[in-house]
Amino acid sequence: MNKILILAEHDGTTLNPGTAKAVSCAAAITGHGGGDIDLIVLGDGIDAVAAQAAAIDGVNAVLATNAPHLAAPLAANHGPELAAAADGYTHVLAPSSTYGKDVLPHAAALKGVNPLSDIMAVDGERRFKRPIYAGNAIVDVTVPEGSLVMGTSRSASWPAAGDGGSASVTTREAACAPAEHTRYVGVETSGGDRPDLQTASVVVSGGRALGSAENFEIVYDLADALGAGVGASRAAVDAGYVPNDMQVGQTGKIIAPDLYLAFGISGAIQHLTGIKDAGTIVAVNKDADAPIFEIADIGLVGDLFTIIPELKAQLS
């Protein structure tokens, strides 16, 4: 019998959608060999989050651990807590977000386990697929019998589980003392009311071709007309046109919107890694030989500074 524990991700008030996607990944495992799926929520004052977690379809129980030192998402505190909670489980999963990637390997080391990153498919209780080399190869991996399975689920590969569940919520005392050597200072978010890049069904992205932060405004304008999230290439982030949390790609966000529109992005493999799972990719580039056209479903060769305003006018 499988017993799967999933580390829930949240910001203190709202559950991150990566959590419900990890539940789908776990459900694919129990689909092969049966079993239960539990969620663990770590934080301080997280009753609302625990209630959201309990409503995810397929969840058996939610373990809620409240403690002041768990309020900030520090791996130094969340890692040992996850490791302590893992006893009795056959699998421990986390979303493949920066939080999951920070915490899960930490916990795995404490359990003496070699974890799997970015599980994109489940072929059996212990058989998985994961991408390597920026998604240019997909490898089958099998975790030998008897060993705890720990890994992150690649969010872009899994649909979010539904929200008709009614799991029990149990209070679990914190098992580990606070780490004195690490102190949380804060987080600076770019904020805004636009749809979240990682969950938006439409994403508009701009690249180096935009030329400046001022010029990037036309990308925001089009996105707002479409109700879309906004992304960017690394070159646009490095040049300071947009903040880092907008980067799409191997080292930025891996996204799977229904529609992705790329303006003035050449299509480097590291960028394409981030959009391979998009439903439809539209590329606008003035260079007909740009590599992005090799994977675009709809391509338009031309100048983005004329095309974006035209698009906005014709779509709104």
Partner: peptide, 8 residues
């Protein structure tokens, strides 16, 4: 981090 820039 996904949310922006975190300082520790």
């Amino acid at each position: 981090v996904d949310a922006g820039l975190e300082t520790i």
